[in-house]
């Protein structure tokens, strides 16, 4: 069966993401969480005790962290770029393109998180918060990957760089976790934004939600089909 066109409206739902975009999101999610949990062994208080025991010991955890690093670094982004060039193009264009409306939405969004109404400008395919999340995901991903490669093979790099890799790795993962708190809260628990989770899981998101939250995109691309 042919893929519906992005923006197709059917049974009150809008086709927002193709299966490759969905897969890229979830490969990234799963590998990130696996890396987070295995990495916390060296970070959480007493993590090397109880958490490592849960994961099969520190020596096994060390291997697992490297195993999950491979899909994190090598699968999700190439998947998107090579198998959904349209999705990749939209994502990159949106995250690097900020106009006055985006900044206004970013600045005024906090009451919305708390369930209060704020008069906000319409957003394109990704709203300002999602753009910021995308930028952070991309750049912390690059930082984590590069510093991780250096820490994996320290003997192949100059010592000052190996030493720098540790703070970079920490700062990147903590920064991403901070953003993730908001990202997960909005997608799982927020009464209005929760609808976005269906969009990134099935590809189809509630039309009313899309019209309200991605007005610019909705007007431009949504067609009945």
């Amino acid at each position: 069966m042919a893929q519906p066109k992005i923006g197709t409206l059917r049974n009150g739902k809008v086709y927002r993401f193709d299966p490759v975009e969905v897969a890229a999101h979830w490969v990234h999610t799963i590998s990130f969480f696996a890396l987070l949990i295995t990495g916390l062994v060296l970070f959480a208080p007493g993590g090397a005790g109880w958490l490592a025991k849960l994961l099969g010991g520190v020596n096994v955890t060390r291997l697992l962290h490297r195993v999950f690093a491979v899909p994190y670094a090598l699968i999700s982004l190439p998947l998107l770029v090579f198998f959904s060039p349209r999705g990749a193009k939209e994502w990159f264009r949106e995250m690097f393109h900020w106009d006055k409306d985006d900044i206004k939405l970013m600045m005024g969004y906090f009451p919305e998180i708390l369930g209060r109404h704020a008069d906000l400008p319409e957003a394109p395919k990704f709203n300002a918060g999602e753009k910021f999340n995308s930028l952070l995901t991309l750049f912390t991903g690059i930082g984590l990957t590069l510093s991780g490669i250096i820490m994996w093979w320290p003997q192949s790099f100059p010592q000052w760089l190996v030493r720098l890799a540790y703070p970079v790795h920490d700062l990147a993962f903590l920064g991403m976790c901070s953003m993730l708190c908001v990202h997960i809260f909005l997608s799982v628990a927020h009464p209005k934004m929760r609808a976005a989770l269906e969009g990134i899981t099935t590809g189809w998101a509630d039309a009313e939600f899309c019209k309200e939250h991605y007005g610019k995109w909705y007007k431009k691309v949504v067609t009945k089909g």
């Binding site: 920064g175 901070s178 708190c181 628990a189």
Partner: peptide, 15 residues
Amino acid sequence: GELAVGGGLLVILAG
């Protein structure tokens, strides 16, 4: 970094 994560957790609680 820890401050940022703390802020994120506060947003969840407030939310």
